[in-house]
């Protein structure tokens, strides 16, 4: 007799039959999935490699020797992307949180602060990133001020300005999703508005919006490359230079593959956090 736990009653014939049937079903599902994947894969390969222009495309997009030649420059550019991503992500998260908090302040004294924070999110969500980058990296140095930071820093600032506008709205949505009864409970215990925000509202809000915050970070990862418009050489710009040298598009494919590889850990973390949040809400 099959027993699940020592001491548990033996399973009935009906239950054993159910278990056997489910096992047969799952084996069948795996076989069907494998077969359909194989068929689709073969069809794709045949369709692409069988196309009349395949040899030309392969020569101009998938040349291994050019890929090897371009790789060091592209990697050097990618290192710039990684550094920029790190600092810009931290900067936008911090600035976004501050702006979201300023928008929640009450009282007449804070009216100008509230209005400023609100117009900030309107402006920088509406303004194309490329224009912000141009204004900061080309316009601001034109002022010829003392101690002007490098173009790279100015470009990073443009990214932070734009992305903190988006992140501020995500944070605000999180803050507003915390039920007012939580604030009432905190205030009734004698916590000040600021303490209630810090210890009760924000921890719950940030947990709730972690998935969309990380999602915006993944988008930022692709946009950091736009600072190359102002001169610094990122991975895409390095690929562009290499493409012009070889008169071959393979470097773009190399850069594309590297970007996907870079995004995988971040996307995996996002999925994991989303899953955990869903589990938590289900009370497991």
């Amino acid at each position: 007799m099959t027993r699940l736990v020592d001491g548990a009653p033996p399973l009935s014939a009906v239950q054993l039959d159910r278990i056997a049937w489910r096992r047969r079903q799952s084996i069948r599902s795996i076989l069907v999935a494998a077969a359909s994947t194989a068929v689709l894969g073969v069809l794709l390969v045949v369709a692409v490699t069988g196309a009349p222009g395949w040899d030309r495309v392969r020569a101009s997009f998938l040349d291994p020797s050019i890929a090897a030649d371009a790789l060091p420059d592209i990697l050097r550019g990618l290192w710039l992307n990684v550094r920029l991503l790190f600092f810009c992500a931290l900067g936008s998260l911090a600035l976004g949180l501050v702006i979201a908090l300023l928008r929640t302040l009450r009282g007449p004294v804070f009216f100008p602060v509230r209005a400023l924070a609100t117009s900030y999110t309107y402006t920088f969500r509406g303004l194309p990133l490329i224009i912000v980058i141009y204004v900061l990296t080309l316009g601001v140095p034109g002022l010829r001020l003392q101690g002007m930071p490098s173009v790279l820093v100015l470009g990073g600032a443009a990214l932070v300005l734009t992305y903190s506008g988006y992140l501020a709205e995500v944070f605000r949505a999180g803050i507003e999703s915390v039920h007012p009864s939580q604030v009432a409970a905190a205030r009734s215990l004698g916590l000040t508005y600021r303490q209630a925000m810090r210890h009760v509202v924000l921890p719950q809000a940030v947990r709730r919006v972690a998935p969309p915050l990380l999602n915006d970070t993944v988008a930022l990862q692709k946009d950091v490359g736009l600072v190359s418009l102002a001169g610094p050489i990122d991975a895409v710009r390095a690929a562009q230079i290499s493409t012009a040298e070889h008169f071959n598009y393979t470097p773009y494919i190399v850069a594309g593959v590297l970007f996907v590889l870079l995004a995988i850990p971040l996307i995996a973390v996002t999925d994991w956090v989303t899953l955990r949040a869903a589990r938590r809400q289900a009370g497991r």
Binding site: A184, A186, R187, S188
Partner: peptide, 19 residues
Amino acid sequence: DRVRRKIGIVFQAYNLFPH
């Protein structure tokens, strides 16, 4: 805030902090 420190209140829906 000073007044509330001297008064405790318990709500119908408990309002414990879930985090």
